[in-house]
Amino acid sequence: MSNRPPILQARGLHKSYASGARRLQVLRGVELTVLSGESVSIRGESGSGKSTLLNLLSGLDAPDAGELQWEGEATLSAARRGRLIGLVFQSFYLVPELDALDNVLLAARLQGPIGAAERARACDLLGRVGLADRTGHIPGKLSGGERQRVAIARALMNKPPLILADEPTGNLDEGSGEAVIDLLLALCAESGCALVLVTHNAAHANRCARRLFLREGGFHPV
């Protein structure tokens, strides 16, 4: 595993938020390296800073201090983020006007013109997440588990080397949640992309190769 190149490196990340008159320090010098193809779970209590950390790791937010590198580069433009990182959210965030296929293709459209190859890949991904017969359904016609599976397919569409999943089972029942985690781990392993999974669920976290626990602004042994 250690021979694999790092896909993501975070050094000394600090992040605080204003809370009334004082500042709330959420992250205090977080260090994290994610290697290519590795699966890492991050657990922690509510308010421990898991989502804040994921926002920093995805480049959606900037740290107050510290350094981040994605594939060895410290800059991450919006377009590069789209190519490099697949994001899976707790609330799915599907575009309600688009059907399942177009929601998956949206990730590719944002990178440039799409053609038959992209359509075939989107259909293939939807088939792999078990939605081959639901490609024409809009999100409103899909169950929560099915929506999250569409979101996973979308995250994998651009063949990113890194998937960041923020509590992907948070809005699902236990059965659907299990199925989604199975799928996520299997697809990441199959495509060789690294996975950072933020979750409350210890059982889900334990299925990742490396397990981290976030508390008081830093990682602690599980």
Partner: peptide
């Protein structure tokens, strides 16, 4: 608003 956020997260620039 959240869809606009999603577009940004997926790689859309503010101009787009």
């Amino acid at each position: 608003t959240r869809e606009i956020g999603l577009l940004g997260a997926l790689g859309a620039s503010p101009g787009q």
